[in-house]
Simulated assay, not measured.
Amino acid sequence: MTLIAFATYGNRAELVTDTAAYTPWCREFGHRTKFMAMPHLDAILATQGDHTFGVAAQIEFGELDVSFDDTADHAPQMLRSAWNSLGERTPETEGSAFFIGNSTKAGEFVAYRYLAEHNFEPEQVTGAHIMPTPLTYRPQSFEVERLGWLDENPQWREEWTEQPELPAPASRAQWIDLADAARTHRALFPDPRFRVIVAGKLMWTRIAPGRIRTEVIHEFNDTGDELDRLVANTLHPRAQIAPCGCGSDKRALDCHITAAADEPCPCERYNKTFRNCCMLTDAEAEQAPTLGLVQPRINA
């Protein structure tokens, strides 16, 4: 799950997404577009979480030829169909969809949120939304629910939930600042339980009656030290050859990762052992210091 932020302004709506896409535990890490423009409806569908779910959802929405309001009414059924078409999901698998557009009923632009854990029931979003939320703004209740381990840190949870609500950005510069805050506070956060990757290009889209416009307004630095911080404590090749988190001064690949080689792979993608799935081979380990983002094999 990576960055999605949007706001409605009555006569228009704006959406900002990054392009980072990664497989479980970041073994592979590349770029994807996370939204589908629907110009005939003055609308956009954006998805977060499992990329294959996003593709399936776009297919479902693309086959329906009705108004924005009617599409919103059908959205829960279509999203459940997309979710269920992909087979069994673990309880930790997250899926979110956002449908933003010009509502004839409301007489203005509106936004709806649909979450897998809520069976994709519609939730209207007023004002501004961002996920992941920077630490300087109040998180949404569903985000706190997903971070269940925060219950073990009640003071931290209370301080975060007492931050001010997110205001709707008034310019592209403010959207960039907001995205940078999300990356700094969440993608580069030391504790991996709190980390959500924010990376790639920042796409800004403006939806107005009869017009949808998209521009790349920023590009994050996903190289060198910043890349190492993004993927720390994951299964990305650079993380596997980094010093082990136990403090042994050995590479993770020669320490705790090797110890788990014959255990089920944490990525849970192919029901294989870690050795036969995400663990680096000797040849890959030699190449790892020069690797940047490793393009996900979505259909592998």
Rank of each mutant, 00 (worst) to 15 (best):
G10P: 04
T17S: 14
T19N: 03
A20L: 04
Y22L: 06
W25P: 06
E28V: 07
F29K: 01
G30V: 04
R32S: 15
T33W: 09
T33P: 08
F35D: 12
P39C: 09
D42M: 05
A43Q: 08
A43M: 09
L45P: 09
T47F: 07
D50Y: 04
T52F: 14
G54E: 06
V55C: 07
I59H: 08
E63H: 13
L64G: 03
D65R: 12
F68S: 01
D70M: 12
T71Q: 13
H74R: 15
Q77S: 15
M78H: 10
L79W: 03
A82G: 07
W83H: 05
G87C: 03
T90H: 13
T90K: 13
P91S: 12
G95M: 14
G95L: 06
I100N: 03
G107K: 02
E108N: 13
E108V: 07
F109L: 02
A116K: 07
E117A: 11
H118G: 03
E121K: 12
Q124Y: 07
V125T: 11
G127Q: 08
A128Y: 10
M131C: 15
P134C: 02
R138A: 14
P139I: 12
Q140S: 12
E143S: 11
E143F: 14
V144S: 03
V144D: 02
G148C: 06
G148H: 15
W149T: 06
L150Y: 12
L150H: 13
D151C: 07
P154N: 00
Q155P: 03
W156P: 00
W160H: 06
E162G: 14
Q163W: 02
P169A: 07
R172F: 04
R172H: 09
Q174L: 04
L178Q: 03
A179Q: 11
R183M: 02
R183C: 04
R186D: 02
L188W: 05
F189D: 14
D191K: 08
D191R: 09
R193T: 09
R193M: 10
R193K: 14
F194S: 10
V198A: 05
G200S: 00
L202D: 00
R206V: 15
I217H: 01
H218D: 12
N221G: 08
G224R: 07
L227M: 05
L230W: 10
T234K: 01
H236K: 03
A239D: 05
A239E: 04
C246K: 11
G247D: 00
R251A: 03
A252P: 01
D254W: 06
C255Q: 05
T258K: 15
A259E: 15
A259Y: 08
A260Q: 15
E263Y: 09
C265A: 09
P266Y: 08
C267S: 00
R269C: 11
Y270I: 12
R275C: 08
R275E: 13
N276G: 06
L280S: 08
T281N: 01
A283H: 10
E286D: 11
E286R: 02
A288F: 00
Q295L: 05
Q295R: 14
